[in-house]
Design a protein around this nucleic acid. Sequence first.
DNA 1: CCGGATTTTTACATCGTTGGCACAACGATG
DNA 2: CATCGTTGTGCCAACGATGTAAAAATCCGG
Lengths: 336, 336
Amino acid sequence: MAVTLRDVARLAGVSIKTASNVVNGYEFVKPENRRRVEEALAATGYRPNIGARNLRRGRTGFIALVVPELGIPYFGELASLVITAGREQGWNVLIEQTMATREAERAVLTALGPHMIDAAVISPEALHAEDFAELDPGVPLVMIGEHSVDVRIDHVAIDNVLAARTAVGHLVAIGRRRIAAIGAHPHRGTAALRLAGYHEALAAAGLPQRPELVREALRYHRQNGAEAMAQLLALPEPPDAVFCFNDLLAVGALRSIAERGLRVPEDIAVVGFDNTEEGAYSRPSLTSVAPDKLAIARTAVDLVRRRTGGTDAEFVPEEIQTPFTLEIRESSLPRF
Amino acid sequence: MAVTLRDVARLAGVSIKTASNVVNGYEFVKPENRRRVEEALAATGYRPNIGARNLRRGRTGFIALVVPELGIPYFGELASLVITAGREQGWNVLIEQTMATREAERAVLTALGPHMIDAAVISPEALHAEDFAELDPGVPLVMIGEHSVDVRIDHVAIDNVLAARTAVGHLVAIGRRRIAAIGAHPHRGTAALRLAGYHEALAAAGLPQRPELVREALRYHRQNGAEAMAQLLALPEPPDAVFCFNDLLAVGALRSIAERGLRVPEDIAVVGFDNTEEGAYSRPSLTSVAPDKLAIARTAVDLVRRRTGGTDAEFVPEEIQTPFTLEIRESSLPRF
DNA sequence: CCGGATTTTTACATCGTTGGCACAACGATG
DNA sequence: CATCGTTGTGCCAACGATGTAAAAATCCGG
């Protein structure tokens, strides 16, 4: 059924090794033989058995991409780009979903033995620093998005503090004074960073920190945003702007605001994070921090390539910051 | 570095085969030896080398899921479910993106040789019937979503004609008379089916077919929906309702309608297709045909299991219809 | 305590591929 | 013509796991 190199070699009248040499682009093959092998290759439609090749070469050709959930637009879009970037470098990308549970993320670190994949790109949501210390996956790891300061792992992300400060600074610039935040989280590193940026921006503008304006979101889904916003609107003095830690939260917030009969941006300005296409088409369209997802994907895959490149020199974790912009849309237009 | 069965066997003081027998649950192993091997297994943290195992067994344990693009919410959500359903049955799911190009879909059929995967679940967008005839991937194929009548391949989908008729029937029921459709496509099977359902519903209601109310969409993205809607709004007699062939088109349509200052559903009612979460949170929230995505994922994976089960009896393609509902939301509420 | 049946273990070949190495073929050089 | 360096090819082993089948250990009744 399946065509093997042996079949090709037999058809071309050469040894298996010569056929292999042609396939692998080895230089010194007699033109005559090369032609015959190539014809046989074409005639049989030969495809190398990846498993066997990897077994021999000691690599698998797979990298894992560990994300919370593909159904979340940001991760869907990111996965799409990582798959493409990986493909360009000859990798197959295997996607693992953790549903943002610490247990699943730990399991992935453990189970992704050294046999199955050559490296992993992971976007942890619930892992603690000690998890990394205690579970050694045995393959290079590149973290994207999340940031745990005391973990010695390669890391690709935007400057979350600066990004958050920029977003909130923009709200200040359009004249808002009671600026809320949605998305604080007890264990999530990025949440802490974005919250820090939020506080910095308030401080820089001389605005008071009002704890009641900061809402937690245990998951970053639309519903969580809607619930948090509903709570903010129930305050005696509701906010005149809200910075959501991702676009889904913001979309949920928009809905709660609309249900209360308030208008965006006139009554409340809204800024999101991730710049998903969904936000660009929401009503009103959503101002959002726009990480360069393509850069993140490319950089992560590139790191993987370097880490699997073999040089066993002393490991110095890389901390790479990718660019971002603030996409200003209807949800935060100035009042006049 | 990597622990092999040889290491385990040495540590347990038995032969490799005995260790293998324990790992594979072979019955006749002396309890004493079984215990020793199990201890060694635990002590070394052995993980089988999947590639080697598959090489020997002649299977790969992988199935491919071929979709246009993960960044599209419907496919992101579907992929998420297929991965989970596959995992439950012991499969690793490998995702391939085709960006809805015929070329990439053909390439996938060709390249997914029999070595890499055991089967493929494919959601074709641009493939023609003859592509299937001429390219034999050499592994079982299960189609989801798309329907090409004359292809002898397993197929899982909802009844697209009925679903479209239901959606349009609903628009008729709330009193709309000039009902447009967005999403016609020259080569896409599902588009033809949904269009047929649209026509059937109009006919059943005694409404005339107006060709100018049917717009093509070459891709099913938000932007295509927005453009098509803009054209409809430019008609001398614009529609009072529009049936979009997926939620993204509908979201784009909502935006165009809003930009023209018209209201949904008062001026124009909108119905989408796919029931993505994005649609449920859009403003107004989107009435949408809701395929049971979980059922589709489960059924497809189940078919894969049966097809790879080995019985080489005569191949009779299965045609499985999964259930759907119509989720009625704000975008198609009756006028009073 | 032996012959035979049954349970348990082991050696060996094998899956498809590639690296290492020996050797063959070749033209060029002294 | 002998020698040499350069090219090109084929043989063998190996990657890690498992199927086959034979060998070894164990058990049973007589």
